[in-house]
Simulated assay, not measured.
Amino acid sequence: MTTAPGQVPVAPQVPRHPLDPEPVRATKARAVFALGLMAAVTGLFVGGIVPAAVALQLSRQARREAYASGGFLTGAAWLRRGERLAWTGLVLAAVTLVTVVVIGVVQLAEAPFGHDYPSTVD
């Protein structure tokens, strides 16, 4: 049923059972977001690996719990944001590690090979 052209159709509300719990935001969703943010901030210093791994593990648990709750646990947007930030932290840490390895290999390649004896030694 629509009330005027251009408006969104109005769906009738299904009455809830009085014993149904109220929908509530999952506490793990907030923790995943905080850990993902910490991972993204410290990703360049390679310290973001640990919070990113914990955030990704918690997000898997939170998704399973939200599915099992039948819609009474909310916070999927916070989970998505936290997962994205965690992956960003992992990518930043990987970029840092690759950069350090490349710099190390280049410096090792520029180092003189063998012994560098003084000019007085035959």
Rank of each mutant, 00 (worst) to 15 (best):
G114C: 05
P21D: 02
R60F: 02
I103E: 13
V46Y: 11
P18R: 11
V14H: 10
G114H: 04
V98Q: 06
I103K: 04
G43M: 05
Y67E: 15
A109V: 08
T96W: 06
E83Y: 04
E65D: 15
A68S: 12
L85I: 00
A109P: 00
A40P: 00
Q61H: 05
T99I: 11
G36I: 04
A93P: 05
R84S: 05
V24D: 07
P21I: 08
T2H: 06
V14L: 14
G89H: 01
R63S: 03
P9E: 02
V102K: 05
P51F: 10
G6F: 09
V8H: 11
A86R: 04
V101A: 14
G71Y: 05
D20C: 02
E110V: 06
M1W: 09
A55T: 02
Q13F: 15
F33E: 14
R30E: 15
G47A: 03
V14Q: 14
Y117D: 13
V91K: 11
P5M: 03
V102H: 07
F45A: 05
I103N: 06
L97P: 03
A11M: 14
V50H: 06
M38Y: 00
A11P: 10
T74H: 06
L73I: 00
Q107A: 07
R30C: 00
E110Q: 09
L44H: 13
A26I: 03
P18K: 10
V32G: 02
R25K: 14
Q57P: 00
V106L: 15
M1G: 14
V95G: 04
V32N: 01
G82A: 00
G71W: 02
L97K: 12
V24K: 15
R16G: 13
S59T: 05
P112L: 03
I103C: 07
V105Y: 12
A34H: 06
G114Y: 09
E22G: 01
R16S: 14
S119V: 14
G47L: 13
Y117S: 10
Q13P: 12
W78Y: 09
A40R: 13
L35A: 10
R25G: 01
F72Q: 06
T42P: 00
Q107I: 02
P51E: 02
T2L: 10
P51R: 13
P18G: 01
G104C: 04
R16E: 13
Q57T: 08
R80G: 01
A66L: 10
V100N: 07
